[in-house]
Design a binder for these strands. Structure first.
Ligand SMILES: [Mn+2]
Ligand SMILES: [Mn+2]
Ligand SMILES: [Zn+2]
Ligand SMILES: [Zn+2]
Lengths: 139, 139
DNA sequence: TGAGTAAATCGTAGTCATTCCGAATTGGAA
DNA sequence: TTCCAATTCGGAATGACTACGATTTACTCA
């Protein structure tokens, strides 16, 4: 997903286009990795020093709900990234050093459904953590 | 894992056997599901009204480090359960209503390793969330 | 069995991410 | 341009978790 598609989605859901929202979306498009609310505030400190934390948290949550962003919980923090272009369901490798993510092709849920026929399955989380090639070389 | 094995592990790691630790371990053995530090405090409020939160948090963390407990992060909270008897690596289904867990046989990591040969893989998380048969019937 | 001691606990204050709220501002419809 | 619901702001409140000095206690060893 890119900035323009995100803005379209925003409008189609009845949300207003504001400078705060533009700045947050442009940042996430540029960074292309998981950022916390704190990361977003720091990154926008120069450009938008008056943006309140309420605004950051509220918009990140809204964007996540309307599927503009992907969200995860990592190290006791909620983190957000622009939704991948990839078509359909997928999971991520996440580099614990630089935050770079890599999309994964595998999802084990078909097998789990067969394994638990009497359970209602609502959601699942699959994430792989480690060091990306760049950070390995640099280290 | 049960209480007695846990106490053995405790001793073998050089930790002391205290009433607080006994109470926490007995509770987790009995409950057999993920509990937060707050859950533990509430459950022990009658029996041990003076147990401080420091004691609960510190011991849950210690038990997790020495592999007596399994740990996850769910809804912004750390949660702990007595380590399963099952031999070796596994993952869980977790009922979002009652907290009941079900061990899963599938782990997709062999495939991921093949998919990411140039990445260092340190850890992974796979969890399935939903409603267990009992809660589905009751609902 | 009775000190001695390091470990453990207690009580409380501090931290940090996140949420809440009332007042002020503003995007966009009419 | 006017108007108002949506949005933002600033700051206080919440809740999980951590830190820490003072006190207690489980275990060691004489
Ligand atoms: Mn993605
Ligand atoms: Mn288990
Ligand atoms: Zn999946
Ligand atoms: Zn696994």
């Amino acid at each position: 997903m890119n900035f323009d598609i995100a803005i379209e989605r925003l409008k189609s859901e009845g949300f207003k286009r504001t400078p705060s929202r533009e700045a947050i979306l442009r940042l996430l498009e540029r960074e292309d990795r998981y950022l916390s609310a704190g990361d977003v505030r720091k990154a926008l400190a120069d450009e938008h020093p008056k943006m309140s934390q309420d605004t950051v948290y509220r918009n990140l949550s809204s964007f996540s709900e309307m599927k503009i962003l992907e969200e995860t919980e990592l190290g006791g923090e909620r983190k957000f990234r622009m939704h991948c272009n990839r078509h359909g369901h997928h999971h991520h490798f996440i580099c614990m050093e630089c935050g770079r993510t890599e999309e994964l092709d595998v999802c084990p849920m078909e097998q789990v459904s067969r394994e638990l026929p009497s359970f209602v399955i609502d959601d699942h989380k699959f994430e792989v953590y480690g060091q990306c090639p760049d950070c390995r070389t640099a280290g």
